[in-house]
């Protein structure tokens, strides 16, 4: 299953909730959730922990738009919109943690 999160983990609980409930699978960070891919934030330890259970992706255009395409947490893969489409196609279901 693909989990899609679009909010910064430093301001909202959506990513926390996703990581609490979801059992694993693919996790895609889009929009403001791409800040969760940055190394050095307060959330990094939780993200590193999540990487043990999830394959984590961040949307490149959203990273670039926010100036945070550099210094990503090791193990997080970067995808473009085509990669986003592939992730949706590859998983039987997807859930947006709005």
């Amino acid at each position: 299953m693909l989990h899609i999160v679009n909010k910064s983990p430093l301001g909202h609980a959506a990513l926390d909730s996703c990581l609490r409930v979801a059992q694993g699978g693919d996790l895609l960070l889009i929009e403001d959730a791409v800040y969760a891919a940055s190394a050095g934030t307060l959330f990094e330890p939780l993200m590193r922990d999540a990487l043990k259970r999830f394959k984590v992706y961040a949307l490149q255009p959203d990273l670039e738009a926010r100036g945070v395409a550099v210094h990503l947490i090791e193990g997080i893969a970067v995808v473009d919109y085509g990669g986003f489409v592939d992730l949706v196609a590859r998983n039987k279901t997807c859930q947006s943690w709005l």
């Binding site: 299953m1 979801a22 059992q23 279901t93």
Partner: peptide, 18 residues
């Protein structure tokens, strides 16, 4: 509990979030 709920989500065909 959260694990049981997560497992239930995995079994769905369509998930709509609000």
């Amino acid at each position: 509990d959260r694990a049981a709920l997560g497992a239930l989500m995995d079994q769905q065909d369509v998930v709509l979030s609000f």
